[in-house]
Design a protein around this nucleic acid. Structure first.
Lengths: 183, 183
DNA sequence: TGTACATCAGTGAACGCGCGTTCACTGATGTAC
DNA sequence: TGTACATCAGTGAACGCGCGTTCACTGATGTAC
């Protein structure tokens, strides 16, 4: 059942897009090829018509996920400046989202031990995010250092808030990090 | 080849201790029961004489790892105050360590999707860490909020520094987070 | 204190299962003339 | 423009492998008398 070139391209994008959501919600190791294909409405056998191996799909899915965070952060920065971006990122709804926004918080420790391709993509996305956050700072000299500290706090707070079994403590982590960053 | 009660207890501790190191270096999903048993000098078959399942060993290993970080942070706080703890945590040697010190940075995203037992242990360890860090703050009112922000920044910066494929950017993340926290 | 028996730590083989990957097959698409 | 053939997206079965878990077996330890 061969498909047209246009349809093949659309199918590939659908697999990448569905996988971007899946890996952020279940992790890279926790998501199988069959699940990623099924999420795009396909069976697992056709996978290798689009990708050379799992690592290739994961790195492309990571790029798609990265583009989404960047877009969301940018939109928030434009609308309400740094405070808006911080409040959106550290919101309870982001913490509890079935599909988390941020791949760094969702996949952080897994990416640290991950494949080269994925790390290269993550590095690129991180660079873009830091540039955007630095632009939102008045003090040009310290802008980049502040951007790095802010992003570290955001990712760390979200990671810890998701680990914690105590709902009150989890909320407190988000609130404290938010208050600290908005001061 | 039955062993004495004392020796059995020592064996169990050895498995937990070896596993605490293994899961921090390879992740929970990336470490098999056979590897954890082998690290303690045993074959995998005897596993169930000591634990009911993998989850039980992982949560105990997490406790052991947590106790170690708490001890290291405490030692640093007593010797050189908050600055010493921050510099040790965000050091290049901690980033590159074969066995990372901090289970939150090493297993963060995995724990977020992890089992209840592990999350409960992580919550407990986190609470201890926050109490210790808050005690190192002069301003009593804001001490806890600052402790949470500091730990978030530490964990986030280490996570990001390990993800990044660019060595220069990785170093910059550690330095910037350090400078920010020491101001 | 000595003897007889029950217990159980540890081994190594085996289990069922899900995984990433491969493959024969299908039929619509793309291409050469 | 029409025809004949090559291409290839997608299916579903099959592969080898490593995993967590189970089990029969061993022999030293623990216990009851």
């Amino acid at each position: 059942v061969r498909k047209s070139k246009a349809e093949t391209a659309r199918t590939r994008e659908a697999i990448v897009s569905a996988s971007a959501d899946l890996i952020r919600s279940r992790g890279i190791g926790g998501t199988s090829l069959a699940e990623m294909m099924a999420a795009a409405g396909l069976t697992h056998g056709g996978f290798y018509r689009h990708f050379t191996d799992k690592e290739e799909l994961v790195s492309e899915a990571l790029r798609a996920a990265g583009d989404k965070v960047v877009a969301i952060i940018r939109r928030n920065l434009h609308k309400g400046g740094l405070p808006a971006a911080i409040e959106t990122y550290l919101s309870v709804s982001h913490r509890d989202a079935q599909t988390p926004i941020c791949p760094f918080a969702a996949l952080g420790s897994e990416l640290g031990r991950g494949a080269r391709k994925s790390k290269a993509v993550a590095t690129d996305v991180l660079g873009t995010l830091l540039t955007d956050l630095a632009r939102a700072r008045p003090n040009r000299k310290k802008a980049r250092q502040q951007a790095i500290a802010t992003l570290s706090t955001l990712v760390g707070a979200m990671t810890l808030a998701r680990i914690v079994a105590d709902a009150g403590l989890s909320d407190e982590i988000l609130e404290s990090a938010k208050d600290h960053l908005l001061e």
